[in-house]
Design a protein around this nucleic acid. Structure first.
Ligand code: MN
Ligand code: MN
Ligand code: MN
Ligand code: MN
Lengths: 149, 149
DNA sequence: TTCTAAATGTAGCCTAGGCTACATTTGTTC
DNA sequence: GAACAAATGTAGCCTAGGCTACATTTAGAA
């Protein structure tokens, strides 16, 4: 055993666990970030183009089409999307629900950033990553803040 | 070729590229998030406990010690940390610089969230993920907003 | 109808970051 | 100084999400 463990006062265990819980939450959010971005994008493409094709999805995301197809496979596996061979991608009801939630959240995050004075370009760029870590509770606070303004 | 590509008006290419750039930026930020959290945590542990040991790092992060050791290996590979066999972990000058920057940013993000009305617990939890996606430009806007208040 | 380019799909490779199980070293205690 | 428990390190496995190269299918054009 390391001597320092004995000489040092016991660390604050609850605080340590709370910190670990925060990191775990961030890791969990990260693990669904890709699903969220795909759902939002597929929904956008269907709305604006009438269909969501793997190539278009890939180009918008800046990844290869092979990568996009692999992620679409995960979406299907998780019950968020469907597609038939050589046909476009569609969202299941669960996928649609996710897309709506994600789109709303994305917009609110951008609006909040703009409201506190972040320049347009930075707001739009940073929101793409930030959004996935904004909890419902935080989102509510953002909405209330924007209302008050 | 898909018929719809012909019938549909040409999509706005610059906008598509801009969107891809935003996603790419988010992916890049994600790829350094782990390094940032480790640097910040190692610095905190050295400050508060006098040393940063793999077991303590692992417990604070909520991962196994094997995972922590593997990530520490990456920190070393990237010139951010050093360690000798069975000894604790230390930050290189580059690692220290990173830790300082990350700690400052972390605090600013929490403060900004609190300032717009996010409850303490949610602010601290969400900040752990959000921080990695906050650009310098956005951070500056946060600082100015907090100053104005 | 046939040809051909684009889209789609598949295979196989890589890295990061999780994990468990096992081996080694250390340092305290007896 | 030996024994033991804790810490540290290693090995090997897994999944996600990147990539390139190649195969197949589609659908518009000739
Ligand atoms: Mn996003
Ligand atoms: Mn988004
Ligand atoms: Mn963090
Ligand atoms: Mn942090």
């Amino acid at each position: 055993m390391n001597k320092s463990r004995v000489l040092r006062p016991a660390p604050d265990l609850p605080a340590e666990e709370a910190q670990a819980a925060r990191f775990e939450k961030a890791r969990l959010a990260q693990s669904t970030a890709v699903l969220e971005d795909y759902a939002e994008l597929i929904s956008d493409l269907i709305a604006s183009e009438g269909e969501a094709r793997p190539t278009d999805i890939a180009r918008r995301l800046g990844v290869s089409h092979a990568t996009a197809i692999k992620s679409i496979a995960r979406l299907k596996r998780e019950g968020l999307a469907t597609s038939k061979l050589y046909r476009g991608v569609f969202l299941t009801p669960n996928g649609e629900t996710l897309a709506r939630r994600v789109r709303t959240r994305h917009r609110l995050v951008v609006d909040l950033l703009l409201a506190v004075g972040v320049p347009q370009g930075a707001a739009e760029a940073d929101a793409e990553g930030i959004e996935h870590h904004v909890s419902d509770e935080t989102l509510r606070a953002f909405a209330e803040f924007l209302d008050r303004k």
